[in-house]
Amino acid sequence: MRIMYINNDASGFADFINIAEGTTINQFFAIKMQGCEAGDYLIRVNRQHVNRDYILQEGDRVTITARKIEGAIS
């Protein structure tokens, strides 16, 4: 199953990826953001906040954005 995954962490990754059918957003986060706390991120599916048990659907657009990003003088 193909979904659009946008990770707004340092590299600003945004691409289509394949995932297993029946994957919940919670499982997806655990796979993609290993070692990270879900509470530290804003997780949206199709621009909306969803329940952690939400099962991802074909063509969904998942956005993960850190709640804390460090600014710095370049």
């Binding site: 946008i6 707004n8 962490d9 340092a10 590299s11 600003g12 945004a14 949206r44 621009r47 956005t63 954005t65 990003i69 460090e70 600014g71 710095a72 003088i73 370049s74």
Partner: peptide, 20 residues
Amino acid sequence: CEGDGTVPIRKALSQGRLAD
């Protein structure tokens, strides 16, 4: 001063992801 946000900000803007 964007720091770690520099790349994600540019990518979000260039892809029209205004909410991001």
